[in-house]
Simulated assay, not measured.
Amino acid sequence: MKSVTVQQVPANAQLIDVREADEYAADHAAGAKLLPLSEFVGRVHEIDPDQDIYVICRSGGRSAQACSYLEQSRGFDTINVEGGTDAWRAAGLPMES
Results as ranks from 00 to 15, higher is better:
residue 66 A to L: 06
residue 40 F to K: 01
residue 73 S to W: 09
residue 65 Q to E: 07
residue 12 N to H: 13
residue 29 A to Y: 14
residue 43 R to H: 09
residue 75 G to L: 01
residue 4 V to Q: 04
residue 2 K to S: 10
residue 94 P to R: 07
residue 32 A to M: 09
residue 95 M to V: 12
residue 44 V to I: 13
residue 68 S to D: 15
residue 15 L to S: 10
residue 18 V to D: 02
residue 61 G to P: 00
residue 81 V to N: 12
residue 2 K to Y: 10
residue 80 N to G: 07
residue 58 R to M: 01
residue 89 R to W: 11
residue 29 A to M: 08
residue 96 E to V: 12
residue 58 R to K: 04
residue 33 K to E: 09
residue 19 R to L: 00
residue 97 S to L: 12
residue 77 D to L: 03
residue 52 D to F: 05
residue 82 E to V: 11
residue 18 V to Q: 03
residue 46 E to V: 03
residue 46 E to H: 05
residue 16 I to S: 01
residue 88 W to I: 05
residue 51 Q to Y: 03
residue 88 W to K: 12
residue 95 M to I: 12
residue 75 G to M: 03
residue 34 L to S: 03
residue 32 A to C: 07
residue 37 L to F: 05
residue 48 D to V: 03
residue 67 C to M: 09
residue 9 V to C: 06
residue 89 R to F: 12
residue 95 M to C: 02
residue 84 G to D: 08
residue 14 Q to K: 10
residue 89 R to V: 14
residue 65 Q to H: 06
residue 26 A to T: 14
residue 25 A to R: 15
residue 33 K to L: 14
residue 82 E to H: 08
residue 65 Q to T: 13
residue 76 F to S: 06
residue 9 V to D: 13
residue 18 V to I: 04
residue 22 D to V: 03
residue 13 A to Q: 10
residue 15 L to G: 11
residue 72 Q to T: 12
residue 34 L to A: 06
residue 68 S to N: 15
residue 61 G to K: 02
residue 6 V to E: 11
residue 79 I to H: 08
residue 91 A to R: 05
residue 97 S to W: 12
residue 39 E to F: 00
residue 58 R to Q: 11
residue 18 V to K: 04
residue 59 S to W: 01
residue 72 Q to A: 10
residue 3 S to V: 07
residue 54 Y to W: 13
residue 65 Q to S: 08
residue 8 Q to D: 15
residue 84 G to S: 07
residue 90 A to T: 11
residue 95 M to P: 04
residue 27 D to A: 11
residue 29 A to K: 11
residue 23 E to N: 09
residue 6 V to D: 05
residue 64 A to R: 10
residue 16 I to Q: 04
residue 10 P to K: 07
residue 59 S to L: 01
residue 4 V to C: 09
residue 48 D to G: 06
residue 8 Q to L: 05
